[in-house]
Design a protein around this nucleic acid. Structure first.
Length: 366
DNA sequence: CCTATTTGACCAGG
DNA sequence: CCTGGTCAAATAGG
């Protein structure tokens, strides 16, 4: 793992695991001074840490996690026999890319891992949009699809009149988002750009979707940019991809919001329950909760966690928090309990569950 | 000074 | 050996 895991990924993983350990220590302390709310919150945060760490180590086929290790197009042997988390000899730290850790090499033992990574990349979803720009003023960068991209290469392509541009998500460094796209101007019709996307966005910013038709530059008349639809059979897959991306983005937003709340409370677990400090964050979550399918989540978790409830029924902020969500579920016909919903978080947030959901995740009602 | 782009070089796969 | 994809030093731009 070390061999293919970049410095940034490694550090991030260490951070996450360290945080988990500290949380566990806090939990240990609280065993001596029992406080159900704090214990539950700590437990929740520990679970989140584990989820994060595991997802960082797991290469999901359709949705590589933010920190999935990768290799460069061409593998380069280590100059030293050992993979080094520090700058290589003769390489000043400043000379490394401003996105630390997006460079990973396969080390001597990295063969199997390398195969995994390559498989992972091969399995990345890939789809192409054709975008026609009718006003000559438009340039590639203006083919805004709602995400910010950073150009990392350009290549003359055989038998192609125009070079191909290579872009990656600007959040690769900060969030390990592996989404990339290639932009190729059409030979026959220079007003048409073929944009090939590879990999879904795993960055939390990815909330606007990836359909260019739904995210045109604000200052442009939609009539100026015509989205030429992909062939019907491709279109279906494409649509499914788009839907799944949206769901994934939602879940990620939800996850990150939750994580930030627990992050905040980790600095002062007790203060986390004071109403003002947390309510702002909660308000941001409410829109998500409107669509979060609590009833289904609870039903599923009751099947799994049968007779394993350890929670108390204190009317803590956390309970109110989940009550808000479960009341949505309740109003839609299913009787559910806030604490059950809370208990189900470890299951809900299992990234594998997302990837198993074939295009129609259950955790958000449509 | 910091960040993004350009561009020649490098690498693996075919 | 050729080609596509990527890296990373150099450069441009704010």
């Amino acid at each position: 793992m070390d061999n293919i895991m970049g410095e940034c990924e490694r550090n991030h993983l260490i951070d996450v695991l360290t945080q988990g350990r500290e949380l566990a220590e806090q939990l240990q302390v609280h065993f001596h001074h029992p406080s159900p709310e704090v214990q539950q919150l700590l437990l929740l945060k520990i679970l989140l840490s584990y989820d994060k760490a595991l997802s960082m180590l797991t290469c999901k086929d359709a949705s590589p996690e933010p920190t999935t290790a990768r290799v460069r197009g061409g593998l380069r042997p280590f100059r030293d026999s050992e993979p080094s988390p520090s700058p290589l000899p003769g390489e000043s730290p400043a000379s490394r890319d401003s996105e630390p850790g997006y460079k990973e090499y396969a080390g001597t033992n990295g063969n199997q891992a390398l195969v995994d990574v390559l498989d992972c990349r091969k399995a990345m979803p890939r789809w192409t949009n054709r975008v026609r720009v009718t006003h000559g003023t438009a340039i590639e960068g203006q083919l805004d699809d709602g995400h910010s991209w950073r150009k990392y290469g350009q290549k003359d392509i055989l038998h192609a009149k125009y070079p191909r541009g290579y872009y990656r998500c600007t959040n690769r460094g900060s969030q390990g988002c592996l989404a990339t796209k290639q932009v190729q101007q059409s030979d026959e019709d220079p007003t048409v750009f073929e944009i090939t996307y590879r990999g879904r966005h795993t960055c939390s910013h990815a909330s606007v979707g990836i359909n260019p038709s739904s995210s045109l530059p604000e200052n442009e008349n939609p009539n100026d940019v015509l989205v030429v639809e992909a062939p019907p059979e491709q279109q279906q897959h494409q649509q499914a991809d788009l839907e799944q991306q949206k769901d994934h983005d939602k879940l990620l937003d939800f996850y990150n919001s939750l994580a930030s709340i627990t992050e905040c409370s980790s600095k002062n677990p007790l203060a986390a329950f004071s109403l003002p400090s947390i309510s702002d964050d909660l308000h941001q979550l409410y829109p998500l909760f409107d669509t979060f399918n609590f009833s289904e989540a609870v039903t599923r978790c009751e099947l799994i966690h049968e007779n394993q409830h350890f929670h108390s029924r204190e009317d803590s902020e956390l309970d109110l928090f989940f009550s808000a969500g479960s009341s949505v579920a309740t109003s839609s016909g299913t009787n559910s309990r806030a604490a059950d919903a809370r208990d189900s978080l470890d299951y809900i947030l299992d990234p594998a569950e997302f990837n198993n959901s074939s295009g129609n995740p259950w955790f958000f009602s449509k």
